[in-house]
Simulated scan of single mutants.
Amino acid sequence: MPEGLIVKAISGFYYVEHEGRVIQCKGRGVFRNRGISPLVGDLVTFHQEGDNDATITEVHDRKNELVRPPIANVDQSLLVFSIIEPDLSLHLLDRFLVIVESLGIEPIICLTKRDIAGEKQLAFADTAVSYYKKIGYDVLETHRDDSSLLASLQPYLSGKTSVLAGQSGVGKSTLLNTLLPELQLKTGEISEALGRGRHTTRHVELMKVAGGLVADTPGFSSLDFEHIEREELRNYFIEMDRLSSECKFRGCLHLKEPGCAVKQAVEEGEVLQQRYDNYLQFLQEITDRKPRYM
């Protein structure tokens, strides 16, 4: 039977791309009994009985999956953050980085609205960009009507399935409008009262951009670490993970242990204090989490 990629899911129907065509499919009833829910990004096997009558018969193994947005087999995530309106939050950025790192997704930091930021916001952003680049992250900066945006993103997007994610109002829809003007996604205006944009994206869809596939995602501001254990968190702060082998004790949590290479690096300014503070806060959040019952 033929195989294809789910590129869109709306109201119980799955749109599967196969040999250049998009075929509307239904899921097998047995999927519900087995707790299987096909997701955008899934490679599936389907059975076609007519031009407009096809059923997904098998969902292939996934390398990862996200709950919000509901999408599977993501290669990388463009973490879109604005320098202003809303101001750049390293706490929220680190939270996103931990989540995508824990799922085996490659993060790319994308900063927007540089052209309208003030001197203070630019200075803060430049310091942050310098640090995140130093520890190994790719960081891109964009502005409105950026004619070179597609060319700068092409090497990152080509051959990959990418997700745009970030806080509401940071410019994800604007970014996609620049990449694909024919989409004409409605851009949410910033609510001065709430300090966040209105939801403008109604479903997840994979779109062809620069030789790859990109999914737009609804803006959201809360991320939890339900799937991350206390001892795992240190692995998702990449500069701390590299230093862990130099700690005196194996399994060092970088708290009060003697001979901790991470704490020494913080004191010497090699690890950004705010990154370490965020690590401690996330660790406490995981520690305080209610135990999960099977």
Rank of each mutant, 00 (worst) to 15 (best):
H227P: 04
E270D: 13
Y276C: 01
A261H: 11
Y276K: 02
Y236I: 10
D277T: 08
H254T: 00
Q281A: 15
S221L: 11
D224F: 05
Q264T: 14
P218G: 06
C260N: 04
P258F: 12
A215Q: 11
L253D: 00
E246A: 03
H254C: 01
L272F: 12
L233E: 09
E268Q: 13
E268T: 06
Q281C: 06
L255W: 08
V262E: 03
L255N: 08
L233V: 13
L280E: 04
P218C: 06
G269Y: 10
P218E: 07
R250Y: 07
F237C: 00
Q273Y: 10
L243D: 04
V262L: 03
C247V: 06
K263E: 05
P258Y: 11
A265F: 13
F220G: 01
Y279F: 06
I228Y: 06
E270W: 14
N278G: 10
C252M: 02
R234Q: 03
E267V: 03
K263Y: 05
V262H: 02
D277R: 10
I228T: 05
L280G: 03
K263T: 13
M240F: 03
P258N: 07
L243C: 05
Q274M: 09
D241S: 13
V266Q: 12
L272V: 06
S245N: 06
K263C: 08
R250F: 07
E267F: 06
D216H: 15
R242K: 15
K256N: 14
I228Q: 04
V271S: 08
K256C: 04
D241L: 02
R250M: 05
